[in-house]
Amino acid sequence: MFAIFKKELRAYFTTPIGYVYAGVFLAAAALICAFTTLQQASYNTSSYFQYLLFTFIVLIPLLTMRMFSEERKTRTEQLLLTAPITITGMVLGKYFAAFTLFAATVLVSCLNFVPLLGYTVIEQAAATSDTHIGPMGGQIVGCLLGILLIGAAFIAIGLFVSSLTENQLASAVITIGVLAVLIFVGIVAAKVNSSVVRTVLGWISVLSRYDNFSLGLFDFSALLYYVSISGVFIFLTVRIYEKRRWG
């Protein structure tokens, strides 16, 4: 498993994909941060993280599209499947490689908060009253945790899609479609009048469980929800490989 983890992580940086992903992610994050906080003269970061989630629709498939598709196309999966490792080990190696790069870029994007802290220092020095000035630490930590969990779930979905096809492009497009549905369904749900439909759509929506995180609350049930999405799709990916062996 560790060998595959290392190989995949390395592969991101020997191909353009890792750079494209990291570059676009960091640029988008910086832009979004500038527009939502600096331009609005606001310390509130919740909409920054909200918008960041939308970039995942396009960026997560970049991480996952080639994972299994390419192995299948170049027949290198024969090496992995005849090596003395389990299929689960192989899938987890790839999953954690994608998640590591994802988490690393998310952490690097925290540099965006540096200007906010700068303003905080200046404004606090000039402040006359006792009110809180600066970004809310709880909210930032909650949101970071939230988007890391959502990213982890999305990566598992992307991996699953990648294991279905040997065409990278198809894999990417399908993943984009699935992730877009999962995100936009929550927005649609808010516009629906029928409470039944709204509840059902809310169930599908990954965003509905993110709300507590954005308030800076630690929501254990949401954590469990995202972790189980990851688990289910990793399990399904393993099953796809098992099934192909028997097919």
Partner: peptide, 24 residues
């Protein structure tokens, strides 16, 4: 296998080390 399972963007050294690690 019939088609050697090679990662084309690795060097021979990297590839063999990967297989070495993969096989534990």
């Amino acid at each position: 296998p019939e088609q050697p399972p090679l990662y084309l963007d690795m060097t021979v050294e990297e590839y063999l080390i990967f297989v070495y690690n993969l096989k534990g």
